[in-house]
Design a protein around this nucleic acid. Structure first.
Lengths: 145, 145
DNA sequence: ATGCCTATATAGGCCGCCTATGGGTTTGGC
DNA sequence: GCCAAACCCATAGGCGGCCTATATAGGCAT
């Protein structure tokens, strides 16, 4: 069974489209900024499980591309607050839309019987996999909720 | 249901350990060399879905690290044959061992009922997911068989 | 004021991917 | 036999994404 689970993980990584369009950390950071509002650079780095200079570089790139904004804290001028821009929200929306569309298109190719079987399997597996994921060191912590 | 499948793929990518230890392409290329024997650089690049210079660079690094060997074809001196070394086989064996150990350790934390549910779900999902993966553009083609 | 701590930036290095281009090697038409 | 086209691989140069070590600048406490 472990072999089957391993193969599924393998297929997920191979076909996830990451990092063809955008790296996992980039997407996760943007999504976090959308859901949690303005964040400090260091705490972003900690939550995403990358070193602080890596986050500095990522945010600089996203700022250059117009997807986030940076503001110095007037009360503590060492601190940088990072927030998502309208363009950033648009980027996330586009990504989600195209992902969902591809997924729907793919699922539509399945005969009803197989789709039902897959649906049942996903629903059964999801809570168990979530539990396993909590106990396994990954790349950063998921956003709360 | 698409949302659940998407979440599962997300968790798989997040917790796969790629590319913390070794990139997907690197592992896949080494594994292909192990199973298929000596291969030419260009055909390796095509099968792995990367550009030829990327494969040249990857193979140069793997050769430097001692995991593959390169030989020019005496009958067509343009051609380079790439094969896995003993150290390369050892690397793959170690990786598989540690992956399997982590997976087993993780699964051992589940109550028997949940493990049975997960096992059933995986067995039910696997053939359907395989079918979907064939219809979806990924990073290169899987090795035949 | 001095010296410590904190928050971010910079320097430098490696992997992993790309396009464009260069340099040998065959091959095929003539 | 020769030369051009086709082929295989290497190199150059660039960007994303990650790291450690170190610098810079601001805040804080004695």
């Amino acid at each position: 069974m472990a072999a089957g689970l391993d193969e599924l993980a393998h297929l997920a990584v191979r076909h996830s489209g990451t990092p063809r369009e955008m790296s996992f950390t980039t997407a996760s950071t943007l999504s976090r900024l959308e859901h949690e509002g303005a964040r400090r650079l260091t705490s972003l780095a900690a939550d995403e499980g990358v070193a602080q200079p890596s986050m500095t570089q990522l945010i600089q790139r996203l700022e250059r591309q117009g997807f986030v904004e940076r503001h110095r804290d007037p009360d503590d001028r060492r601190v940088v607050w990072v927030s998502i821009s309208e363009a950033g929200r648009g980027l996330l929306a586009d990504r989600r839309g195209s992902r969902a569309a591809r997924m729907a298109e793919l699922l539509a190719t399945l005969p009803a019987q197989e789709e039902a079987a897959l649906s049942a399997a996903v629903l059964a597996a999801l809570p168990v996999i979530r539990k396993l994921a909590e106990r396994h060191p990954g790349t950063g912590d998921p956003p709360p909720g």
